[in-house]
């Protein structure tokens, strides 16, 4: 077993945009996954939206996430063979929303893809696919959104547009955002940055991009 982080404590405030930075292999994605309840922690505890995840199995953690947590992935993770609209409808229908269709359409409208709602995912560009992914994440009106390198697979210009879109929607909805990135420009848009390094979490000054000291 590998210790990703040791003796650390981290609190994410309501409606805050926290950015986790770190070198490749430093454990950024693992930390994000653990915080989101996607994996089991080996020791200690994580509290997500007031629920302790430490002693919960996947089924219970899934119930905690349901309808309250959204994700944006580096590789989009969309259902191939389905349309943009259907991809956005999926998490809504999984939690039993009866107006999934209308809400998904609205969400796609917000990301500027209303006209491409019936286009198959395979026929969309990388940037468009990530927009669908963001629409899907915001469609469930999450309390907290976890984004893992959301611009990592995109060119700089598209990446910037995606970042704008994500932060705009987050500002509109007041969703808490936990973002993992190694891109400085994107990281600087967060309210707070922390660096993960050798299992330690180090706060950074968002304006100076310098270490503030261990938290």
């Amino acid at each position: 077993m590998l210790d990703i982080v040791q003796d650390v404590s981290l609190k994410v405030k309501y409606q805050e945009a926290l950015v986790i930075k770190g070198a490749s292999g430093s454990g950024k994605t693992t930390l994000l996954g653990l915080m989101a309840g996607l994996d089991q922690i080996s020791s200690g505890d994580i509290e997500l939206l007031g629920n302790s995840l430490g002693d919960k199995n996947e089924e219970q953690r899934s119930a905690i996430r349901s309808g309250k947590v959204g994700f944006v992935f580096q590789s989009f993770q969309l259902v191939q063979g389905a349309t943009a609209l259907q991809n956005v409808m999926l998490p809504l229908e999984l939690r039993g929303d009866s107006d999934a269709y209308d809400r998904a359409r609205h969400s796609l409208q917000q990301v500027g893809l209303e006209l491409k709602k019936n286009t198959l995912i395979d026929h969309l560009s990388g940037g468009e696919q990530q927009r669908v992914s963001i629409a899907r994440a915001f469609a469930v009106q999450p309390k907290i959104l976890f984004a893992d390198e959301p611009t990592g697979n995109l060119d700089a210009k598209t990446g910037r547009q995606i970042a704008d879109l994500m932060f705009r929607l987050r500002d509109q909805s007041g969703t808490t955002l936990v973002l993992v990135t190694h891109e400085t420009e994107l990281a600087e848009r967060g309210d707070r940055q922390i660096l993960i390094d050798s299992g330690c979490l180090i706060p950074l000054d968002p304006t100076q991009n310098t270490r503030l000291g261990q938290s």
Partner: peptide, 13 residues
């Protein structure tokens, strides 16, 4: 087409 889960999801897969 107004409902994705479960039938349309399966077929698209």
């Amino acid at each position: 087409r107004r409902q994705f889960w479960l039938r349309q999801y399966l077929l698209s897969r």
